[in-house]
Design a protein around this nucleic acid. Structure first.
Lengths: 358, 358
DNA sequence: TGGCGCATTGCACACGTGTGCATTGGCTAA
DNA sequence: TTAGCCAATGCACACGTGTGCAATGCGCCA
């Protein structure tokens, strides 16, 4: 689309003169009809108190009849504000991400802001493009929902001097705030629950290594073992990719152990989905033969067979919170925001006491 | 946020003078540094052939060092193009919708367009707000992914003289194009498949009545019955809401019949999810006691227990297609686009021959 | 009656970019 | 040598909106 070394992305060869543009009514058109200066129209449409009440009403009526719509571009050019935020996600098709975005959009809309959505696919090259785009659009703020954030990505975003809220990620930076689930505590609770059911051989099926969420959830698992005086067994830890596919392979490893686990605590519900399929494919029953616990409480998790016991992340509310954080920063609240949201264990039917003592 | 009768949405009380704006470098700043007119910079950054090669390179180097980024707002003000499209969905948390949006964003990005995402929640009031916002933003095109589209909504969007692509919906309008799954054929295939397995009492568990997709899928079901010479039984048709909750209730009705169905063909996978839970809660087995077929082939459907037999909608590709349709219209292709995408029956394990002859 | 204050409106500039047209300067051909 | 052409650049305006300041006009009070 553009030559290398470009500083603006431009798409050409569109909109031939064939179709009449029918350019929308501007403030000047309204002014001409009303017989006033365009500045008066500008003020009237914003209900400025300096304009007489009757003029305001007259102009608004005319504008309404003419189907006038403010040009956001022109306005933002002078106000230096786009009333726009950028949301970058690894993949909007991920149910967790979609839930969060839903919350973001909700409160953004309530405050009159529009949201740009961009997928990064966790590809550094696309992250770069996204950052450039958001910069050109002069977004007022950015929210990043990504399990994986490229090492140089946040600095890249930070460079544009715009407040950033990271969701389930953190980064030391003046401009990077965060909204996080209390991973460690939540997975501590989940693991405790499994132990309370009588499990002693509990596996942790994680995401790719190195991601913050995974590290913290793993830490909660470890401290639960420790506090119960259970010996930690490295072979009971396997890593997937946060998706069913990877989890299926990881679960296969766990089940192939000489002494397989009686319960698996999964990094997230999508991983649990994969683990459950792997378990079933071996002819084992859930939870009779082996218990499974997830993390997220996706919408579908309650409809699984068996319904999944899991840690609820209030996805929509976390999205709300991320957006509200941005709004607070816009309002001039200078301090760093690092919000921790508690998880909640949702007990369903995928976990039960182990079959036999070991 | 705004007074009634407003023509532009404005958010105030933000960005106090506390933080130094540090206004980004403009084309004029670059011009001053390079010692040329700003028009030369403008041309150089777009690699205009009228500017000498060496000047182009020098200016681009300077712009790079200054971290210059084109102002999309200023550009769109003069080009009358925002390089932006609006995507309005009922609910981004719906997996089908998310899949489609993923495809839209993908090809939009590939062509240098940014996408605005807006949820309508199927609320007329929000639809109105969304339309106004898109109008102010001067989006170049709109894609609507909604099971339900308010009656006056498309006319509302049409009013702004911008091409619209409806996904799995149609509307007679010069500006409203469409990308649709071949509902009738696909559900004909699905129902045929159930009959081929030996089923005679097949139920249809639909979405809310009156939606186009539901009507068409129902029609396919009906013609399959007809072509097989089966008598249509009205009591074997129930309506949910396209979500597990509604489907659960609808399935309960079906199962409570004196002669319950041996198979249920569901409007979509989410409905199948609800139906399956209802079936299990009655102590019945799938597919041993009753078969279930869905529609969509959501990502998770292959991981269900049992894996769901369903009609695949290529969600991502349909998103791609919708976006490409817009691009073609931008390019000046004047004719109406009404694209039909074939569905594909994915046979898994949730449907099997009926237990006994009836 | 004149001065003052206030309410209302207009003028003019700014925001950052794109583009038609004029200008400049160097080179070539007659 | 000079006219003419072309390549390269600058000038000026436009896009639509917001806002400080000036201008206008009216009413009130001394």
């Amino acid at each position: 689309m553009r030559q290398p070394g470009s500083f603006g992305t431009l798409v050409t060869d569109r909109r031939p003169s064939s179709s009449i543009p029918a350019k929308p009514a501007s403030i000047k058109d309204i002014a001409r009809i009303a017989g006033v200066a365009h500045s008066t129209v500008s003020r009237a449409l914003r209900n400025s108190p300096v304009v007489s009440r009757e003029t305001v009403e007259r102009i608004q009526r005319i504008a309404g009849e003419a189907g006038y719509r403010t040009s956001a571009a022109a306005r933002s050019l002078v106000t230096r504000r786009s009333d726009t935020i950028g949301v970058v996600v690894t993949n909007i098709a991920d149910p967790f991400v979609a839930g969060v975005v839903s919350g973001i959009e909700e409160t953004a809309d309530r405050h009159g802001l529009s949201v740009f959505l961009a997928n990064s696919n966790a590809e550094p090259e696309r992250e770069l493009r996204v950052a450039r785009k958001f910069e050109e659009r002069r977004v007022d703020g950015i929210i990043v929902t990504a399990s994986r954030v490229g090492d140089q990505y946040v600095p890249l975003l930070t460079h544009m001097q715009v407040p950033i809220v990271l969701l389930n990620n953190q980064h030391p930076s003046q401009f990077a705030h965060s909204v996080m689930i209390a991973n460690t505590q939540a997975s501590l609770d989940a693991t405790r629950y499994l132990m309370a059911l009588g499990h002693r051989r509990i596996a942790y099926l994680g995401d790719r290594q190195g991601y913050q969420s995974d590290t913290e959830r793993y830490a909660g698992y470890r401290s639960a073992l420790k506090e119960a005086g259970l010996r930690f067994e490295p072979r009971l830890v396997a890593h997937g990719d946060g998706k069913p596919e990877g989890a299926e392979k990881a679960a296969a490893e766990l089940l192939a152990l000489p002494q397989p686990p009686t319960a698996i605590f999964c990094y997230n519900d999508m991983s649990a989905l994969g683990a459950m399929r792997q378990i079933r494919s071996r002819g084992l029953a859930i939870p009779a033969d082996i218990s499974v616990v997830g993390f997220d409480d996706l919408y579908i998790s309650q409809y699984l067979n068996p319904p999944l016991t899991t840690v609820r992340q209030p996805m929509r509310q976390m999205g709300n919170l991320a957006m509200e954080t941005l709004l607070q920063i816009f309002a001039g609240c200078g301090l760093r925001h690092d919000i921790k949201v508690p998880g909640e264990l949702i007990v369903r039917a995928s976990a039960a006491p182990p079959k036999e003592k070991q």
